[in-house]
Simulated assay, not measured.
Amino acid sequence: MRAILQRVSRASVTVEGRTVGAIDEPGLLVLAGATHTDGEVEAALLAQKIWNLRILEGEKSCSDVAAPLLVVSQFTLYADTRRGRRPSWSAAAPGEVSEPLIESLVDSLRELGARVETGIFGAMMEVELVNSGPFTISLDTEDFAKPRRG
């Protein structure tokens, strides 16, 4: 799985003019996507990393300060732009695979104690945020799921 984390002062997601998820205090906006080989193990690993990563003010983690998260599904994180002018989405898992994985990510975060707001899977969403820093990083379970050498 892949995620973009943005440290925010506040963030919200709107669908058809209605706010469906929002955080009104410092926390993280998490844009998350899945690929074909992902499963519940990757969702749980990603949740652990997000919850415990020390990227908030004062090198704190969300778990340290009970910071809220807004999780928004985003298949475009798996865009392949190596050829031509039109991205390929073939690396992104189809909806019937990725929707349960995004739900598993959210469930795993909640099991860890996180307050999680969400968008609506597959909907055309408008995401509004105030990036604090600005601070934006990317995570990919492929990068931290493998044992380190040396």
Rank of each mutant, 00 (worst) to 15 (best):
R110K: 08
R83V: 08
F135I: 05
A3I: 06
G33A: 00
R86M: 11
T118A: 02
A3P: 09
N52G: 13
E42R: 00
I50Q: 04
W51S: 05
P100T: 03
A145H: 12
D24F: 07
A67L: 03
T141S: 04
F135W: 10
L105E: 06
G133S: 02
L69Q: 06
F75V: 06
K60G: 10
F121S: 05
T141L: 02
Q74R: 11
V8D: 10
V65K: 02
A43D: 02
Q6C: 15
V20T: 09
R54S: 11
A32K: 01
E25C: 08
G17D: 13
V72D: 10
S104V: 07
S9D: 15
S63P: 08
N52S: 15
G21E: 09
I102D: 00
H36W: 14
R149A: 11
I23F: 07
E16M: 10
K146S: 11
Q48R: 15
A66G: 09
V71S: 06
D143F: 08
D107I: 04
V41M: 05
L77R: 09
E42N: 00
R7A: 11
L46H: 03
D140Q: 05
T136D: 05
G113A: 00
F144V: 08
A22E: 15
A32S: 13
G95S: 13
N52F: 12
A11Y: 01
C62F: 13
M124V: 10
P94D: 04
L29N: 00
A22P: 06
S132M: 10
D64C: 01
I102R: 01
V97I: 14
R86C: 06
V20L: 09
G39R: 00
E96Q: 12
L77F: 06
F75N: 07
R148F: 15
R85E: 15
G27L: 03
D107K: 14
N131A: 05
P26V: 02
L5A: 05
A11W: 03
Q74H: 14
S63I: 07
G39L: 03
V20G: 08
S73K: 03
R83H: 14
R85C: 08
L139T: 01
R115I: 11
D64W: 05
P94R: 00
A22N: 11
E111V: 05
R148E: 15
V116P: 01
L29W: 01
T81Y: 12
T118S: 07
S9F: 10
L46I: 05
L46T: 01
R18C: 13
V15I: 10
L109T: 02
S61I: 02
V8L: 10
S63W: 13
S73A: 01
L5K: 04
V71F: 07
K49C: 03
G17K: 14
L101K: 01
T81E: 14
A11P: 02
L77N: 09
L28F: 04
D64M: 04
G17R: 11
F121V: 02
Q48N: 14
L77Y: 13
L77V: 08
A34N: 01
F135G: 07
